[in-house]
Design a protein around this nucleic acid. Sequence first.
DNA 1: ATGATTATATTGTTGAACAAAGCATGATAA
DNA 2: TTATCATGCTTTGTTCAACAATATAATCAT
Lengths: 222, 222
Amino acid sequence: MADPREPAPSPAASLAEGIAARLRDQVTGGALVPGQRLSEARLAAELDISRNTLREVFRLLTREGILRHEPNRGVFVAVPSMASILDIYRVRRLIEVPALAQAWPGHAAVARMRAAVARATELQRIPDWRGVGSANMEFHAAIVALTDSPRLIQFFTQIIAELRLAFGLLDSPELLHRPYIPRNAEILARLEAGDPAGAARLLEDYLNQSERAVLEAFARLG
Amino acid sequence: MADPREPAPSPAASLAEGIAARLRDQVTGGALVPGQRLSEARLAAELDISRNTLREVFRLLTREGILRHEPNRGVFVAVPSMASILDIYRVRRLIEVPALAQAWPGHAAVARMRAAVARATELQRIPDWRGVGSANMEFHAAIVALTDSPRLIQFFTQIIAELRLAFGLLDSPELLHRPYIPRNAEILARLEAGDPAGAARLLEDYLNQSERAVLEAFARLG
DNA sequence: ATGATTATATTGTTGAACAAAGCATGATAA
DNA sequence: TTATCATGCTTTGTTCAACAATATAATCAT
């Protein structure tokens, strides 16, 4: 029997990847503050792994963009900047819009989109806004999955992780996530109605508005 | 004085990154055959580094897509497949064409494009077709640099590394690289003439034809 | 020859050790 | 007092040796 305290949602092929997943959640969940330094010795002891293994974890998360590595100084939780948010939304527009425009409404990923909308709607009632945010992200990851392009899918996964890091920094999660549930539902409906081009137009609006909201929330932080 | 046999072109912030650069060249240069297994112990001894450091190198190159890691089995030089080539060209179209279309002809990266064309033209006279290939890739990396998007630039760097791996697998490098020197020159001229849209159209043709040529060469291998 | 079982080699992970780089402290000189 | 430099401490970078876990190869029975 597995220890119920550690659900181990992913089989975690290697120990390093398992720890990486845990750390990733801690970062996107806000347990680790952006800019914070992660001491090798301390964290290794805390996680009960060796320094060498932790170093591998660091390499993984650094490549994902949620940690930053400064030679001979250590690793830090990445600090999202206005520039990075602009860049992220630019990449999102570039990838998501064509992905949706070329989509075949019968694609398997459409089911993922549907499930994501349903989950967001549920979590809204609790309410669990951070969860809603995750579900919304899953919706957009599914859009990229419509392309069947392994490289785009992997790249977008990183982008999403970075964006979640930025979200974690901001307050007012309700304002950031709630308005987009019906929008995602609309996009999905339009796609299922056999109008990918129309869905893509809606998506573009979505991204523009979301970007503006995020930047405003970011500006409020000073 | 540095050992002239090891030019160490990049300062190599860390030892691992330096070794990674060397290994990367060996792979894209064809010294290491796709599918070949890289033994940790043997390679570590050969490169005169520890197994742990070599492991870090492996992680770096695996993330770049030129090595493949199978748990508990080892790492192998990635084997380009027809599917991966299709995917790579799809990504190239998605990123490069809009990048060029939105370009400002006075951007600093235009100089890089110019330099790449010049270098390819020179190397053509030697002739050094592998070098011509590298220069052509540099041309397209410069196109992506027109976007000023750090994420796109980094992503595209990986894509290029993978494509070079595929090129290394194929024979007839002249056929694969020579026809594209004048095409790149044309694209550059059109951009400098203040017609980014026209340049983008040329680029799209370029990518379609290049993809076809690569796939044909790949099919000839069986 | 085929399938199961035992060796053997390789990877996964650890802990300790030392070198090298950065950081803090305090002494010295202007 | 302030600035500069020397010193020591802390942390990262890298190596080494060892053992556990897993896959590959070899052996043996049928």
